[in-house]
Amino acid sequence: MRPVIKASLHYLALAVVSVLWLIPVYAMVINGFKSDLEVSSTPVLVPPTQFSIGAYVSVFGSLAKPLLNSLIIVIPTSFIAAFLGAMGAYFFYTLSYSYSRFSSTLSDVLFSLIALATFIPYQATLIPLTRLIVDMGLLDTYAGIIFAMLIFYIPTGALLMSMFISVLPRSLVEAAKIDGTGDLKIFLKIVFPLSMPGFISTLIFIIIQSWNNFFIPLVLVTTPEMKLISVAVEAYTGGYGTLYNDTFAAAMLASIIPLAIFIFLGRYFIRGLIALGGGGKGV
């Protein structure tokens, strides 16, 4: 095939996929700006004749606190999970290069367990998890929700970070050992800085996952004051007398933060993934 035709087909395919992907976003944005009357009387994909921010105003009042709550939960959760995950990943890295066959087997077993842990559906663990949090007296507190989220996201962090850490040249760790360095310092001064692109990717991934997590806040929050955004938005869908423009506005507000993170940090996310393919040289 001629290169020009090939490239054109390539771009055509990309364009089709992009449009398909953008349609829901487009619908979300334009419908949020419709008035109560227009949203129910015009097709979903037709833009409003008159921009009205009425829906946003009415929704924002009740979503402000959940948005703040979500930030308070998600920021520490994602940083702690990604960082502890990275430490865990380095631990496995050292174990798997260990001289004794026992520790490398141990490393494999523990690692498989962790991988398994990330695949367990939340729903299946809800009752024991709720019990645990209640017993700790942490029901309906920020600490309780963060703790519960960490249980799920530290393994995710370890799993992702171990992909990034395992491609670091082993000789660097060996040189540091010969230089008389302890493992904690090797991690903080060498391994962690070198896996920074991976760390940022992991961080973004966990931020988005925990931001959208629905079940944990649903069961661990009992008062409206503590509601997280993912649960609060749910109040605008389904039920009786749904106001569509409000639903779209709420969805828009709820996704602004993950969206912004992706737009501003997305290239680090990609860079991290590229670093993986390039043998960890993406520093």
């Binding site: 060996e174 010969i178 230089d179």
Partner: peptide
């Protein structure tokens, strides 16, 4: 373990720390 053997080693591949400057590399031990 190697960290307790009081060894200086020049690796065939050098193994310099890419995130540290030459000064910091030399100062590391």
């Amino acid at each position: 373990p190697p960290e307790d053997r009081r060894i200086g080693m020049v690796f065939q591949t050098w193994a310099l720390y890419p995130n540290l400057t030459a000064f910091e590399n030399i100062a590391f031990p």
